[in-house]
Nucleic acid binder design. Structure first.
Length: 304
DNA sequence: AGCCAGGCAGAGA
DNA sequence: TCTCTGCATGGC
C-alpha cells in the first residue's frame, strides 16, 4: 500500500538531485531506497530521479496546489547552462563543473536556513543534520506524513524556539550555539528583524542586517543570502572554500581573508554564488579520496 | 591523544 | 584592521 496521494513528473535537464540535496545547503533530506524524503514548508515530499536523470518524480500526501512552492524550492526553472557559461573559464572552475555537472542551488525558507546554519559553526554536516532533526522532533509542529511512516515535523517557527529554554536547546546537542539560536529566534519572533524585509534589500544592506543577529557573522549571513534569498553574488567562504581559493588561485601564498573576499566578489562573475557551490562540492569530493596534494605543476597564479 | 569540523564574539595589539 | 582564544560535541 502506498501512502502517496499526489504525484507529478518533471522533465529536467542537467539536474543532479542527489548532489543537490546532499551538498550541505539543506539538512533534512534523507535517502530511502533511491528516493529522497524531506519536508518543504509544512509539506512532506518524496523525490526520485531515475538513472537517466531526465525526470524528477514527485510525490506528496497533502494537497500540492500548483506545485509552485516545490518548483521554487528546487529552482527547477533555473537556466543552468547560462549559469555555467557565466563562470570564468579557468582550470579550477572547469574541473569543478566537470566533477558535478547538474549541481543546483536551492531556495529555502529564510528562517529555516538561518536557524540551521546557526548550528553549523565548527560542526560537520552530519552533526548539523542531527541538531536540525532533534529541533524539529522536539519543537516543530507535526505535519501529515505517509501512512505507516513515522511522525513528521515541520521546522520549528522562530516563536517556538524563542520560548524554549537555552538548556532544552542544548539538549539537542548544539552546544554553545544554543544561546545564539535562542537570541536570534527572539529577535525574529518579536519582529525586531524582519526576514521578509531583508529580502527586499540590496546584497550589502541585507548582509549588514543579518550580521546584527547574535551568532550570525559574514559566512552564515552569506549562506542564508545564497541558499534562501537567492542573491546570486552571495559567496560564503568557509574553511573548504578558503582552502580551495588558496590552493587553486593563490598557490604558495597566504592571502588574508579580506583579499580572498575581494577576489571572490569580482572574479567569479554575476553567478558567483553558484560558482562557490561548485568549488565547495569539488574540494570536498577531492578530499574524500586519495589525492596528490602536491599538485600537477600547472599551478597558475591569480590576483595581483 | 590531539586535531578538525560549511564560525562567531570578545579582547588586545 | 589584524590576530588570538574560548566555545560544545563527535569522529577519526
Amino acid at each position: 500500500m502506498t501512502a502517496i496521494r499526489h504525484r507529478v513528473d518533471w522533465a529536467v535537464k542537467e539536474y543532479d538531485l542527489a548532489a543537490t540535496l546532499e551538498s550541505g545547503q539543506a539538512f533534512r533530506w534523507v535517502e530511502c531506497g533511491g528516493s529522497w524524503e524531506g519536508v518543504v514548508g509544512h509539506r512532506w515530499v518524496r523525490l526520485r530521479q531515475e538513472s537517466g536523470g531526465g525526470t524528477i518524480q514527485v510525490g506528496t500526501v497533502g494537497e500540492p496546489g500548483d506545485w509552485r512552492w516545490l518548483k521554487d524550492y528546487l529552482r527547477i526553472e533555473d537556466d543552468l547552462g547560462a549559469v555555467l557559461e557565466s563562470f570564468p573559464s579557468d582550470g579550477p572552475m572547469t574541473a569543478a563543473v566537470a566533477s558535478c555537472r547538474g549541481l543546483r542551488l536551492l531556495r529555502q525558507d529564510p528562517w529555516e536556513c538561518l536557524a540551521s546554519f546557526l548550528l553549523s559553526s565548527t560542526k560537520q554536516i552530519p552533526q548539523i543534520r542531527e541538531g536540525v532533526r532533534l529541533l524539529c522532533e522536539r519543537f516543530g509542529e507535526e505535519i501529515e506524513g505517509p501512512v505507516g511512516g513515522g511522525k513528521v515535523f515541520a521546522f520549528p517557527k522562530a516563536a517556538a524556539l524563542a520560548e524554549v529554554s537555552e538548556g532544552a536547546l542544548r539538549e539537542c546537542r548544539i552546544g554553545f550555539r544554543a544561546k545564539y539560536l535562542k537570541g536570534t529566534a527572539e529577535l525574529v519572533a518579536r519582529g525586531e528583524l524582519s526576514l521578509e524585509a531583508v529580502g527586499g534589500l540590496p546584497l550589502e544592506r541585507a548582509r549588514e542586517r543579518l550580521v546584527t543577529l547574535p551568532g550570525v557573522g559574514p559566512k552564515i549571513a552569506d549562506c542564508v543570502l545564497l541558499f534562501a534569498y537567492g542573491y546570486p553574488r552571495a559567496f560564503p567562504v568557509d574553511v573548504w572554500v578558503m582552502r580551495a581559493l588558496r590552493e587553486l588561485y593563490f598557490p604558495g601564498r597566504r592571502p588574508p581573508m579580506a583579499r580572498l573576499k575581494r577576489f571572490s566578489e569580482t572574479y567569479f562573475g554575476p553567478q558567483a554564488g553558484y560558482a562557490q557551490q561548485y568549488l565547495f562540492h569539488h574540494v570536498r569530493m577531492m578530499a574524500g579520496r586519495v589525492v596528490n596534494r602536491r599538485g600537477t605543476g600547472e599551478d597558475k597564479s591569480y590576483g595581483d
